[in-house]
Write a protein that binds this DNA or RNA. Structure first.
Lengths: 294, 294
DNA sequence: CCGATTATCTGACTACAGTCAGAGAATGGA
DNA sequence: TCCATTCTCTGACTGTAGTCAGATAATCGG
């Protein structure tokens, strides 16, 4: 990674946080502590339970309690016990609180507009395009991939989504019972590996390795959530699995796939997998791939 | 300005400040107050006078004093009276202070690297390109243009740069005495208008309007600093002058320019100015432009 | 029904980031 | 020379953003 790129990222961080910071000080909060404003925003028009508030903002319970007391004194929120559980308290915005949130919203808009206003129309278009690109790539960069037990809650959730996706996309539907199995044991070390990709703690993809013998392993369960595609997550999962395979001394990777999964095939090809004769009788497969000397 | 663009800017601000913020907390300061770290950074290897430090960071003198005392106690900086003025104190980093600054630097690099690391090579390139674009456009958006007296310090500095530039670019050099004059009176309301463009307080461009009669005015002294070109500053100065002219009831704008100032001519043409027969005998001019119905 | 757990609240505390009012020493200009 | 100004420092203060240790009440599980 070249130092010029590192320099650019640092410069970007500096410029952007400074510029946003300056504008924020100018337009936003003013004479409301940031903590209170954040709470107001998070409460929203529907109201929330205090414990949710705490969890979402990751704040100390005592601190939240005090902030809510302050907001209550200002008549911006009202708290009452939840209907079904007497320990839980629900807070909701009063009419004045709603007004306050709208005002904060308005100011955030003014702030955003003040960035756009001095620019010409084509400059604005370019700015928006670049901002969208940065957001996408920052999301991509925030994706974390880790080895995990295939029967963990998140892993099972991913597999469920995966099967659902296959059922929706295969022309014939998909029944796991008819497919070659890959159960939890087979995807757990030393028999195999299961990895989960996460974005902001939420699982968004998975993949697995199933060792066939000491030299050959199969790639299984490759899945990326629809709203996380185009971020290179699939490629990173595949690379992670290849690294693991290499560590295990495996030299050949194989996989089979259905003809409707075209983007997957494109990924495999671009990662150096070549189509080979069928090496198993998976009923849902149309294409078999192999990569040697990984 | 469409609301979708406003939404995008807000989303960008949120994503970026959150992502940078999280990383910052993770890598940087840790157990050094931000204020002290900023000071250390600003002192740099050469050392500075305390009053400069105060001015640059815009901090209260008492506050800076206390921060410096704290840094001295930690043996990171040393202060001593300036050689020429006994009131002024100079601070410089000790060896340990220098080490600390280098450590902060290293961590900022790690932070930047952690953004790049998970990305593929083409993704990195796209990120860097988009970051450069955002920085440029944010700089463009931070440019402020204001009407000002043509004999203010900044205005005179701009004019000096302007003349220097002309002298360097014209094939014949440039002697203001031989050119048609536009002195301070003529560029001050009600006879004319002078505007200065600034970026972060620093003047980076200027332009003027000189009224000829009630219907006609001339554009003069259009200049943009070399390091601020390509940000659309020239266009904004021109638009500002046109707005002023309109307010004064002027309907025709004229200007003359030298053949070597090609980018200026392109600007004038793209803003609706058309080339006309010479309307004066400016010795340095090769092209005369006019815009009617402004 | 009892003991553990959960959700909230209160009180006491800390660190950070400043602001404000003056004091004291050095300097510069009339 | 003297008076105003500049520069730095100290003391006293504020507001924000938390943290931590319990106390209390409601609920859950056996």
């Amino acid at each position: 990674m070249d130092t010029e790129q590192v320099r650019r990222v640092r410069s970007f961080n500096r410029t952007v946080s400074q510029r946003i910071g300056v504008l924020k000080d100018h337009f936003l909060d003013r004479n409301r502590p940031l903590g209170e404003a954040r709470l107001l925003y998070e409460i929203g028009r529907a109201g929330v339970e205090v414990r949710d508030l705490r969890a979402r903002l990751e704040l100390d319970s005592g601190y939240v309690s005090r902030l809510l007391r302050s907001l209550e004194r200002q008549r911006l929120v009202r708290a009452q016990a939840a209907a079904n559980d007497g320990r839980v308290r629900r807070v909701r915005l009063t009419r004045a609180g709603l007004r306050e949130v709208r005002e904060l919203d308005r100011r955030a808009n003014v702030l955003a507009r003040s960035v756009l206003a001095p620019l010409s129309v084509p400059q604005r278009d370019r700015l928006i395009t670049a901002m969208a690109e940065i957001e996408r790539l920052m999301r991509a960069s925030a994706v974390q991939i880790s080895v995990e037990a295939p029967d963990s809650a998140d892993a099972r959730w991913c597999l469920e989504q995966y099967f659902r996706e296959l059922a929706g996309r295969f022309e014939t539907g998909f029944d796991p019972a008819k497919s070659i199995p890959a159960n939890a044991d087979e995807l757990t070390p030393p028999a195999g590996v299961f990895v989960v990709a996460r974005l902001g703690g939420r699982p968004i993809g998975c993949g697995a390795l199933k060792l066939k013998d000491r030299m050959i392993a199969e790639i299984k369960r490759m899945w990326v959530a629809a709203d996380a595609r185009g971020l290179g997550v699939g490629r990173r999962i595949l690379e992670m699995l290849e690294t693991r395979a290499r560590d295990l001394g495996v030299s050949t990777l194989r996989l089979e796939t259905n003809r409707t999964l075209e983007e997957a095939q494109a990924l495999y090809r671009s990662c150096g997998y070549v189509e080979v004769e069928p090496f198993n009788d998976e009923p849902y497969a149309h294409h078999w791939f192999e990569k040697t000397r990984i």
